[in-house]
Design a protein around this nucleic acid. Structure first.
Lengths: 188, 188, 188, 188
DNA sequence: CATGAATGAGTTTTCATTCAT
DNA sequence: TATGAATGAAAACTCATTCAT
C-alpha cells in the first residue's frame, strides 16, 4: 500500500492557501482545493476530517510558522529587538502574501476552533517574555504586558502592508520609523 | 428599490448585523436574515439587489456611522483629542458589539466592492486633518500622515476589545494609558 | 406566491413509493424521487425535512391507510370478522403491491423513528378490542391479547402474498382457508 | 478467493452480522465491517467479490444455519414436533439476536440474488415432509403444504420476539401456547 | 495474500435567486 | 409591493472499489 504521505498533506494545505488568496474564504470549495493540489476530492477527506478541520489546521500551522519567524527573542538589546521584529514582520508580509491574506480572512471567521485560538494565543509568549524583561529593567513603562502585546500586534498588523509596497530603500526608512514609534510609545 | 418603506430596509440591515454576530459571515443565509427581519425572503430582493449588495451597503453604513462617532475633529487641543478618540472608540466597541463583529468579518472578505472600500477610506479624513494640524504646529513627528493613521487605527483595533471587558473605573485608566501610548509614539 | 400545495406533497410521497418498488430502499435517491414526482430536487426539501423524514412520514401514512382498510371492527359476528379481515388483507396486498413492498422494506430499517413505530403500533387497537370482546364472550381462548394480534399479523403477513397470485375463484377458497386456520387456532 | 485463511472469512461474516445489528443494513459500510473484523478494507475483497456478494453469502449461511437448527424432522410424533419447533425457534431468536436482525433486514432487500432466494426456500423441505406425513396420516387438515409452511413461518416470525423478552418460566408457558395455537389451526 | 491510501462517481443537502400569486 | 414556494446549480461529504507497495 501507499504509505500515508506527509508531503500530500502539505500539498493540500498549500493548495488551500493559494485558493483562498485566489477566490477568498467565501467561495472556497474543497473540489477546487483538491484540483489545485493534484489529488482526488476524496483524498482531502483522507487527510482532514472536513473543510472546517482543514481550515482550522491550516490556520494553526500558518500562525505558528509566522510566530516562529517574527516573534523570537534573540537576546539583542531591547531597542534593537524592536527593530528586528519590525523588519521580520514586514519581510514576512512582503514575501508571504498568501499567508497574510489567509490569516486575515480566518481571524474573525467561525472556522477557527476555540482550541486553536487558544494555542495560537500562546505564540506571543516570547514577545511577552521580552517585554517582561524590559519592564524589570525599567526600560519600559509599567503597563500590563497583555496591553503592550496587543499594542504591538495592532501596529504591525496595520502598518506592515503599507511598507510592503515601498521600494527597498524607502522600506528601510519605513521600518525604522515603525520601530521608533513603538519604542517611543512603550519606553519608560 | 427604496420606494415604499424606509423602515423595512433598516430592519433588514439590522437583522443582517445581528445574524452575522450570531452565525458568522460564512453561514449567513438570506432566508435567516429575512426571518429575523420579519419579512419574506423575496422582500430582501425588493430592497437590495442581492446578498452581496446588501452586505456591501451595510458595510458602508456601518463604517460611516462608526467613523462619524469616533473620528471627529472637535477642535480640542491635540493631546485631548487623542484621549477623546480613545474613549469614543472604546465606547463604540463596548456598546456596538454586533457592528464590530460585522466590520471585522467583512474587512477582508470579497463582498466589499472597491468602490465601497474607497469611500470607506475617506472616513479617516478628519483624523488626517487633525494630524496634519499637529505636524504643522510641530507637536507631532514628521512622519507620513498615512502611516500615522494606520498606526492609530491598528492600535485602536487591537486594544479596544481588551478595554471592553474591564470594570468602568479600570476602563477609565485603560483609556488614558492607550491615549498616552499613542501620544508618546507620535509626539515630536 | 404559490400556496404550499398539499397535492405536491402527495405527489412526492407517491413517487417515493413507486421508486422504492422500482429500485429498492437501498438505491433510492432523492433526485430520482423528485424527477418521478415532476418537481425540482430542492422542492422535496420544502415539503420534507430530509430523506429520512420523508421515508418515516410515508411509512406512517402507508401503515395507517393500511390499518384503516384492514383492521376495522364492523360489528359482525366474530367468525365473520375473521373472514372479512382475511379478505381485506388479501385484497390490499393484491391491489397495493407498491405499498406492501415499501412496508416490507421499511419495517426493519433504521429509517423509522421510535415515535412512528409507536404510533403505528396503535393501529392494531381495533383488532385488540375485537379479540377482547371474543374473550369476554368466551368464544376465544384465554390467551394474552398481544400474543393473539401477533399471531394474526404473522399469519396474514406470510400468507397473503400466496393468495395474491391465485385466480379469483381459487382465491375465494384460499381466503376461507386462512380464516378457518386462524379461527381454529384461537377459538375456545 | 478462499485460499489462505478460512478463519478470516468467518471473521468478516461475523463482523458484518454485528455491524448490521449496530447500524442497520442501510448505513453498513465495508470499511466498518473490515475494522470490526480486524482486517484491512482490501482484505474483504480478497475473500468476497464485493459488498453484495458478501451480504448474499452471509444471508445464505445464516438462513441455512437457522433452518438446520429449527426445521428438523427428528421423527417425534407430530404434535410433539410442533412444540419442538416452537422451542427451537424461540431459543434461536433469544440467543441469536444479531442473526435475526440481519435476516429481517435482508429478507426484502435487493441484495439477495434469486439464486440464493431459491436455495433458501429449499430449507423448509424438512418441514414440508413433516406436514406431508401428517396429512397422509390424516392428523392434519387437507390444506396445501405451501400454505401450511407459510402459516407456520408467519406465526413463528411474528410471535418469537414476544417470547424472547419473557422470564424463563413464563417462556415455557408461552412456547406451549404457540405450539397449541398452531396445532389447533392445522389439525384435522 | 494483506494492506490501507487513493479514487471519483454519486449522494444528500443547502441556498441565492426567481416568479406566480 | 409583498409573499414564500419553487428552482437547480453547486457544495460537502461518503463509500465501494482499486491498486501500488
Amino acid at each position: 500500500m501507499r504509505q500515508k504521505d506527509e508531503a500530500k498533506a502539505r500539498d493540500i494545505l498549500r493548495a488551500t492557501l493559494e485558493e483562498v488568496q485566489a477566490v477568498g474564504l467565501a467561495g472556497l470549495s474543497v473540489e477546487a482545493v483538491a484540483r489545485r493540489a493534484g489529488v482526488a476530492t476524496g483524498t482531502v477527506y483522507v487527510y482532514f476530517k472536513g473543510k472546517e478541520a482543514l481550515l482550522d489546521e491550516l490556520y494553526l500551522h500558518t500562525k505558528q510558522k509566522f510566530a516562529a519567524f517574527v516573534l523570537r527573542d534573540d537576546g539583542l538589546p531591547l531597542r534593537a529587538t524592536f527593530t528586528r521584529i519590525t523588519c521580520a514582520y514586514l519581510d514576512y508580509v512582503t514575501e508571504n502574501a498568501a499567508e497574510m491574506v489567509f490569516m486575515g480572512q480566518m481571524a474573525n471567521s467561525p472556522y477557527v476552533t476555540p482550541q486553536t485560538r487558544e494555542t495560537v494565543a500562546l505564540g506571543v509568549r516570547p514577545l511577552m517574555a521580552l517585554l517582561e524583561r524590559g519592564k524589570a529593567e525599567q526600560l519600559l513603562k509599567d503597563v500590563d504586558i497583555a496591553w503592550m502585546t496587543a499594542f504591538l500586534g495592532g501596529v504591525m498588523h496595520a502598518m506592515a502592508p503599507l511598507g510592503a509596497r515601498l521600494a527597498p530603500d524607502a522600506r528601510r526608512q519605513f521600518q525604522e520609523t515603525v520601530a521608533a514609534l513603538c519604542w517611543d510609545a512603550l519606553k519608560a
